[in-house]
Computed example of a mutant assay.
Amino acid sequence: MKTLLFALCLSLAPLSHAVADTLHFVTEEYAPFNYIKDGKITGIAVDQVEKIAKAAGIDYTLEIMPWARAFAMAEKQPNTCVFTTGYNRERAERFVWVNPLLKDQMVLLKRKGDAHDDLTIVKARELKVGSQRGDFAVEALELIGFKDIDLASDIDITLRKLISGRIDLMPTSVKTYKKLVKDGYPVEKAMLMAGQIYGLACNKQTPQGLIKGLQAELDKLILSGEQDRIFTAYGLPPDTRTADNGTKN
């Protein structure tokens, strides 16, 4: 009986280890970085995350949901990572990071034809701005003095509000702006904002071995030129103007 029990434990040991090392990647609907197309989760960041997880030999799950829920899950649940997450000093200590999936500049958009040209921060604060609940852009706006921010659950709702005139401005990345214009949305640049780094933000209880494995594979992806090729495949070459501001943890 003892021999049988020992053999059973040995047979289950690899399975238990695999389950323990499964990473749960959560993200939002935010094209072209992470979105659903033909029933499949895809996008610039999704392609990178899947490639580096597979290259590192890490089992993973991938789920798309509202941003605020995804962000909260990564903060509270071990072995959970949320992306594509804007990095800043306040968030640096709340997660362990794998960077950069993206370097980009932020921009405030207006509805095409609206007369909000040559905006300054002071003028922009007098207008109605909208964003997504829990999004990095909300923190960025609050940091420069925006107070009454209209919050939605996802970018599609914010975009509809902008186009319908319910809000005057919405923040997003330059790459997302280019994708919106390419897709025929009637939006224009109102004002450029600061550059930003985006990456994988993982729960602090995630094993360091998994984080190091992901970071090593992301570094290889970047050095090999594969990250650039992924951007190009989605019609958005990388914007090299955004400076690296020391984001590695």
Rank of each mutant, 00 (worst) to 15 (best):
I144W: 14
S153M: 13
Q132K: 05
I155T: 02
Q105W: 06
V122C: 06
E90N: 12
V138C: 01
D154Y: 14
A92S: 03
L127Q: 08
D114T: 15
G39T: 02
P66K: 07
F146H: 09
V46W: 01
A53C: 12
V138S: 00
A68T: 05
S131N: 07
Y60D: 12
D154F: 14
V46Q: 05
D156V: 09
A74M: 02
A45C: 11
K40P: 02
D38Q: 12
I64T: 08
A70Y: 05
F136Q: 00
G130H: 11
A137H: 04
F146R: 04
V96S: 07
L102E: 12
G134W: 00
T120G: 11
K110D: 08
K54W: 01
A115P: 12
F146D: 04
L141V: 01
G165C: 13
S153C: 07
W97Q: 00
K51A: 14
Q132R: 08
L119E: 14
A152S: 14
I44D: 07
F95I: 08
V138E: 00
G165N: 12
K147V: 15
L108D: 01
A55F: 02
K123N: 09
A55R: 08
R94K: 13
E126W: 08
G86L: 04
R125V: 04
A72L: 07
A115R: 10
A56V: 06
R160L: 09
R89Q: 03
G57C: 06
I58C: 07
Y87R: 07
I52Q: 03
R111Y: 08
L159E: 15
H116W: 15
D156G: 15
K123A: 13
L159S: 15
E63G: 02
T84V: 06
Q105P: 03
